[in-house]
Design a binder for these strands. Structure first.
Length: 337
RNA sequence: CCAUCAUAAUAUGAUACA
């Protein structure tokens, strides 16, 4: 059973959720009895596949096997239903769970937030007396993802007041809320807080959130300062900085950073190309636009997505090259949106 | 018999136009 569990989990972690479910199936055929671990892993694979029917089958097996209410198994069930568009079923699992603890509440709060049902999430959140860092973090992130930045920052402030430990996810989510709402002062405060709590260098994720926050709040200098202070940068960091300069109209700086990134051995992905193409659009540089659009295909073997075509159409149209823009739309392998 | 090792849930950054 242990070997199967490890493989079922491994396959779904490796993005092979389909094989993971198949392996679960062959495990059953051998006559082995799955344990609680097995159920959580295969449910996670079902979540990743949006496999509601298979998930329900597993749920039935859990019931028939007489599995007692278990935080892990039932959190996984809630997660699976929420992910597979079965929020009502998720609620029923939640309601049927006795002695609701923090973990099980976190699962249903997250489920509601994924579907934009913030009021219901808030209700459970308020009813959660013992909140752990995931509870706070889920609520901040959920509000932020649903465009309710003030509410997100409100919950963040509440967490600080309650003396809850602010973990990195929560700080990153709060910074994202500042970025999207232009709350520079609040962002600066969080920056100071993050500096104080950091024992070593901040993680790339946190620093990137700062780079993004300063850029979007109009403070490109501070953004670049944070960027320069970093010793490790991944493709997301570079992309945040490139789009920061693009938004402020410093296209040359964006191009320069793009080249530096490639020289540093970081492979640009689709998002990096959107960023550099948007730099072209903001200054109307058709030549550079064509250059990067071609490099993307030829040098990096990336297939342009609808966003890339969108950037090019935007760029060409603004410069009055309407016929070329129209031809490009006609040449797209996908339906224009 | 002892020692050692492996498997649990939820949250977290970038991307044009609008």
């Amino acid at each position: 059973v242990f070997a199967y569990n490890t493989m079922i989990r491994g396959l779904s972690l490796a993005g092979l959720a389909y094989k993971s479910v198949l392996l679960f199936n062959s495990m059953l055929l051998t006559g082995l009895i799955p344990d609680n671990h097995t159920y959580t892993f295969v449910l996670k694979a079902c979540s990743g596949l949006n496999a509601l029917i298979e998930g329900k089958q597993v749920h039935c097996m859990i019931i028939k096997a007489g599995i007692l209410p278990s935080t892990y198994v039932h959190s996984s069930l809630i997660h699976m239903y929420a992910n597979s568009d079965g929020l009502d079923c998720a609620r029923r699992v939640f309601d049927g769970f006795p002695e609701k603890n923090t973990l099980i509440k976190n699962a249903i709060i997250t489920g509601y937030l994924q579907h934009g049902r913030v009021d219901e999430a808030r209700e459970v959140f308020d009813g959660t007396i013992v909140k752990d860092d995931a509870t706070w973090s889920a609520m901040v992130t959920g509000y932020s993802r649903n465009g309710m930045y003030m509410e997100a920052l409100g919950v963040f402030r509440e967490a600080t007041v309650c003396g809850a430990e602010l973990n990195e996810s929560m700080i990153v989510s709060a910074l994202s809320a500042c970025a999207q709402s232009g709350a520079l002062d609040q962002g600066k405060w969080i920056h100071l807080y993050a500096c104080r709590r950091a024992r070593a260098e901040m993680s790339a994720v946190l620093s990137t959130a700062l780079v993004d926050m300063y850029a979007k709040c109009g403070s490109i200098e501070s953004s670049y300062e944070v960027f320069c202070s970093m010793t490790r940068r991944d493709v997301v960091t570079w992309t945040a900085m490139i789009s920061g300069f693009a938004m402020h109209g410093y296209a040359k700086k964006s191009f320069q950073l793009f080249d530096e990134m490639v020289a540093a051995g970081i492979r640009p992905n689709a998002a990096a190309f959107v960023a550099v193409l948007s730099a072209c659009t903001h200054v109307g540089d058709i030549e550079m636009g064509r250059y990067y659009f071609n490099r993307m295909k030829i040098d990096f073997g990336l297939t342009p997505s609808i966003e890339h075509y969108g950037c090019m159409v935007d760029l060409l149209s603004r410069a009055g090259h309407l016929a070329e823009a129209e031809d490009l739309i006609a040449s797209m392998p996908m339906e224009p949106n």
